[in-house]
Design a protein around this nucleic acid. Sequence first.
RNA 1: GGGCCUGUAGCUCAAUUGGUUAGAGCAGAGCGCUCAUAACGCUUUGGUUGGGGGUUCGAGUCCCUCCGGGCCUACCA
Length: 572
Amino acid sequence: MARILITSAIPYINGIKHLGNLVGSQLPADLYARYARARGHEVMFVCATDEHGTPAELAAAKAGKPVAEYCAEMHEVQKDLSDGFRLSFDKFGRSSSPQNHALTQYFAGRLADNGYIEEVSERQVYSKADGRFLPDRYIEGTCPNCGYDKARGDQCENCTKQLDPTDLIDPRSAISGSTDLEVRETKHLYLRQSLLKDELDAWISSKTDWPVLTTSIAKKWLHDEGGLRDRGITRDLDWGVPVKRGDADWPGMEGKVFYVWFDAPIEYIAATQEWADENGLGDAAWQRWWRTDKGADDVRYVQFMGKDNVPFHALSFPATILGSGDPWKLVDYIKSFNYLNYDGGQFSTSQGRGVFMDQALDILPADYWRWWLLSHAPETSDAEFTWENFQASVNKDLADVLGNFVSRVTKFCRSKFGEVVPAGGAYGPAEQAVTQQIAARLSSYERHMEAIEIRKAAAELRAIWAAGNEYLQEAAPWAAFKDDPDRAAAIIRFSLNLARLYGILSAPFIPDASAALLKALDAEDADWPQDVEAALQALPAGHGFTVPDNLFRKIADEEREDWQTRFAGQRG
RNA sequence: GGGCCUGUAGCUCAAUUGGUUAGAGCAGAGCGCUCAUAACGCUUUGGUUGGGGGUUCGAGUCCCUCCGGGCCUACCA
């Protein structure tokens, strides 16, 4: 038994996430967490809402609410949705928690003590009408190169040239449209991660088994244009973690907060502390996951995230940890994902294009989405959601292959032997052959799950389901029953045990259907099989069960067409 | 502009890292079965691996080039 720490990138607070966000971090992390628990490992799985930054303040203003209240409400909304998708977090925390405030300030203090913080005075655009400094992206104007009138301060979308906000002709605030802008002097803290470049480089280079996506992004940042650059970790905002040096004030930094990307990964640690506090456990309970001097030296730490998050997790957060000089746990494996596209384009939060978490659960149960999303996870390249593909996968894989197998076996048994595992006969060569085939596939399934090769694991699981139908066709209990009822009894006994096995093996992907299946078979205490042959004898003759309702329903063509038009754009 | 990823059957994806005749699922065709959610099983048709050139005994895989798609490019998060 091992100890595995799992974190999912924390979703931003300003709205409900779409399925592309879900499959890029939280859902695969949940799959891995459920699998690891099923294999008997001790797991700590944390996530949280990422609540700071300019967009949160603007979203709150738009909703006409104080930002703290807005974030508290949206946290509950996101919490309910993650429960709805059966995301099995040990703690779904908040980056605005007191624990994260204290830890973030603590890290900043340690970094300063060790010479990794630099105070930099810089000039930034301030909007008097908005009463705030504007990030480059929130300044609009006319592009000096191509004349496009909606160019942003960081880049012109039209001609793709990179810009400086001061390049823009007729600059205005993208928030209010105000042109009453001025350049003001402001002081910020920079994390001197350039000092850690060689150490980070050697560390990344040692991770030869990480996804190419992860290491290539990290190396690009390490080596691009003179190497890893220092990074500002404070902002002139109201909402966030106030800049302090540990417990002490930071002269000259009054009224400023830490940058959301500095405090967000620290929330992984803080969320674990939130979990410990909430359960009345002491500091040792969370520190044994995070401090290698306090028991975390045998922990394997795995992070899940979309590719846009890689630089922060592969470089900035490790720089924070290394620079602290404390024995905090560094990540052991970063699983990163490409993007999921929607029907020929991108999911778009701003345009309401695609399916969002709340809408998905309104139309179908979580398992249907979990199965499709995980079996099509964008691991090697961007993946594509289409309604036709979704419908085909759900109907074929879930309803026909798995659902119908359970249905035909349990109903046949009920009509010929009653709702009880039948006695008589014995397993023969046919059963031995299937047992061997499934044992081989199971070890392949386990290998893929351990390597977090999600699509391959899904394909193997499907093949394990299909083996049941192949066996049943070959063994033909409906024919055997006529002249050799004992043989039919053995076949059905074996098949019911197959169904139980499927309930166990499928649980990481489709937890609700698996639970319903095991409940119907009165086998809810089932453990992960150590030995397939033994597992296929777990339900003995005489064991009672009930025929379950159909585990999955099919998606009709009319429904699919309806959803297709409904989610094409302009949510609401 | 620079960097990275990607293009394989009608569709969604594989291919043990350069090794026999490029494989699965779905869709299509044929046959079988009748326990089951009109479900299941078996067989089968689909490929000049985006185009062109090169290296090699051997290239989907490596190199060059062209074409298409995508991401990142450090103040959105």
